[in-house]
Amino acid sequence: MFLTIPVLLGLTVLVFAIGRLLPGDPVALAAGPNATPAEIAAYAREFGLDRPVWVQYTSYLTGLLGGNFGVSIFTRRPVIEDLIAYTPATLELVFAAMALAILIGIPAGLAAAVYRDRWPDYLSRVAALGAISMPRFFLGLLLQLAFAMWLGWLPLGGRFPLTDDPPRLVTGFLTVDALIAQDLSAFWTACRHLAMPAIAMSLSPLATIMRMMRASTLEVMQQDYVMTERALGLSQRLIVTKYVARNAISATLTVIGLYFGWLLGGTVLVETIFDWPGLGLYATKAVVTQDFMPVIGVTLVIGTLFVCANLLVDVLYGVINPKVRTE
């Protein structure tokens, strides 16, 4: 945990350096095609970009301590405001995708192990292989084609229709806010928008979790204590769903933690395809215009969330495996 701070510091240095090393002049880009050199210089001065890089960097760091993530040179909006607006959208998407992956992947993996080399096993293994092999953006396009264009069941993209009133902002998660506001129709609308991007993001973690769960279940079922449990008359159902499952999940937990971080960084493609107003889409726009303050901000947020996810996994280990707790 104490490594978090140096890691995040290192990230800021890297992103800062890369931002300056890239060819092209972001200030000129931001000032517009018709700006004179004098106007560009004035623009740079306004944002403090005329100072030496290390001065810019230290002033950025001192700003961070006060929660100041700098200002976008394009929109002139403070980055922190954008981060507050976009982070919940991305988190909602990632949580939904992970929830799908866990809720389906774990029982499916368990079932595949129990029915080893019979049809549920083959079916889930073939499906998992397909899901892992399929690129997410391509899957996203297929989903849009099927459910939005042909069937017309789901909206093509976006998070909430601009024409509707979104529920009152509490958590920033539209689905949760809608439930808090007891607005079922808003909840339904939010879910319909969430469905396709969440499915597109969930498939590869789902497949990995399933395979991991299958492998660790097979391993756990070889353990002596499973033999004892059978020898003492516990039913197969109780042994598998209670005694084997908890042991097998603890091995799968690592993958879940890693995937959580991986999804956070991997939202860019899916958010772009589904026009989901999250960190990924925000970062993409900022990268294209070389607007580096938002890029650093997004990097820091994702880095922090990643660390938090791993911390959470470590805590969960303790919950599931009592031996870890006492050690």
Partner: peptide, 9 residues
């Protein structure tokens, strides 16, 4: 040491 399930009381 291996015949009791380690994850349960």
């Amino acid at each position: 040491t291996t015949n009791l399930n380690p994850a349960f009381r």
